[in-house]
Amino acid sequence: MSHDEISFHLPPPAALIPAPPAVAAPVMVPLTIDGRAVEVPAGATLIDACKTLDIDVPTLCYLETLTPVNACRVCVVEVEGARVLAPACSRAVEAGMVVKTRSPRVDLSRKLVLELLGSSVDLSTAPGLSGMMHEYGARPDRFQEVLGSPSSVSSVAQPVKIDNHLYVRDYGKCVLCYKCVEACGTDAQNTFAIAVAGRGFAAHISTELDVPLPDSACVYCGNCIAVCPTGALMATPEFELRQAGQWRPETQAVTDTICPYCGVGCTLTVHVQDQQIVKVTSPFDNAVTRGNLCVKGRFGFEYVNRTQSD
């Protein structure tokens, strides 16, 4: 390269540090939640407002990085004057709203949702669910008690779908939260390999025409696994370790590093058990990834493991 002025001397620091253009301060909306006054920016949801007050609202199908579909209805709260309970994850705040996050009606509704899910879906690998069940006094067994036999209580139990080497789909654990569909679709990956098919209780997550994954549009980014709240979608190493009874998250070292592949610089959260990488995720609050990775970042670590065991 020539010794032009620009390359020969470093340019001086800018007088004004480059930054995004200033945006007008958002209009603040006042409302009352559980008797406490709060102001949040217009457009915020009730759950956002609850967070500013450190009020915990349970969620299943909600994730900051995804468009709320309010499918699970665990997050419902009571809005004064409204006929129905409002899903806190998607309901935008309005000035003067008076919201109760706990009330007999709210608690009954949450309890019911947990019982309905608990009685129809295998929630054994859903983190946090048992605590929620306990808090709301949910007894999923009560339907069986009335109906007599387990077989008379419909469930989504079904064989695990294993059709590729990277991840398994155990739809017996699916609560149909739509997160995987959103992550595969417009909210992140835009691959559209999966969608909800069927109606009523037969509604399920499906590839196009229910073909196996290798015949579908799937690109194996695993962003669906990352958002799955129940372990219905699981990377193969975790699935196999769980099958063998050797999945021990308490012994795992979890470290953030940067993906070894392309130059985008995605943060990988690496889960290591017994000197083996067993899972890779990415933080949802990371500005580069927003929790998303590609197939190489999420699954392409085997070259390190191979030598660990070789």
Binding site: N164, L166, C218, Y261, G300, Y303
Partner: peptide, 18 residues
């Protein structure tokens, strides 16, 4: 290609379905 990387010494070790 999406699932591969350069001369494949890193990516060759994982079982990419594609």
């Amino acid at each position: 290609r999406l699932a591969e990387y350069n001369t494949g010494v890193q990516t060759g070790s994982y079982a990419s379905p594609t």
